[in-house]
């Protein structure tokens, strides 16, 4: 499903060039559950951004579902993000002035879906994530765990084939963290590919495959050691 070949990403910091990613090659099958781990600054977030088409690599190629997406233009990439990829962030990234319902409905709005269709899908998603009675609450009226569940509901509302999660439990207490991890795993169980960036070893251990990043390179990939 995912095919990364010799990905390079260089940032200019002051006079210095920083190689956030250098010669990263990896692949992932549909339905995999991968944790990307590593110390801060190791390039794990950069990798996730490249995978999510939020950032463009300076070199190398990226194929998603057999399509070479690294060469697509901005508009086509936006379409792919909209339909194939769901994002979950450490800081939830909910629009503060919108209710839980409207935050979840946002991707549907962007894709031009009518109000009636949205209504049924968002209502279903709210009850599926145990937020049925929180529909009209704004983010500041929700607990951290509830916020992340809204964010996950939003990430899955377009029924993507890939979920990218950046420290999804990093801003939650232990109990809420476990709850969120379980929800994500349940989604993975239904066949959605789950790629998660974390430096929480407990969370990392739950994944079926672990990729360790050090200094912008893949230092260790559990799937490779197995084969």
């Amino acid at each position: 499903m995912i095919q990364l070949q010799h990905i390079e990403r260089v940032f200019q910091v002051g006079d210095e060039e920083v190689h956030a990613l250098s010669d990263v090659t990896m692949s992932a099958e549909s339905g995999e559950y991968i944790a990307i781990m590593g110390p801060s600054g190791s390039g794990k977030s950069s990798l996730l951004n490249i995978l999510g088409l939020l950032d463009r690599p300076d070199g190398g190629s990226y194929e998603l579902d057999g399509l070479r997406v690294s060469g697509l233009n901005e508009k086509e990439q936006a379409r792919i993000r909209r339909h194939k990829i769901g994002f979950v962030f450490q800081f939830f990234h909910l629009v503060p002035r919108l209710t839980a319902f409207d935050n979840i409905a946002l991707p549907l709005k962007l894709s031009g879906m009518t109000r009636e269709e949205r209504q049924t899908r968002v209502t279903a998603a709210l009850s599926a994530f145990g937020l049925g009675n929180r529909a009209q609450h704004r983010p500041d009226q929700l607990s951290g765990g509830q916020r992340q569940r809204v964010a996950i509901a939003r990430a899955t509302i377009m029924q993507p084939s890939l979920i990218l999660a950046d420290e999804p439990t990093g801003n939650l207490d232990r109990h809420a963290g476990v709850e969120v991890a379980e929800i994500l795993e349940e989604l993975n169980h239904q066949g959605i590919t789950l790629i998660m960036v974390t430096h929480d070893p407990d969370l990392g251990r739950r994944a079926h495959r672990r990729i360790l990043m050090v200094d912008g390179r893949i230092d260790h990939d559990s799937s490779r050691t197995r084969t």
Binding site: G52, L54, E74, K75, A78, R79, I80, R81, R82, H83, I85, F87, F89, H93, V95, L106, P107, L110, S111, R154, M158
Partner: peptide, 16 residues
Amino acid sequence: RAEIGLLKALGASQRQ
């Protein structure tokens, strides 16, 4: 900025 980034992550195009 954060909101704009989010909209983009959710698949909003430049035009939108």
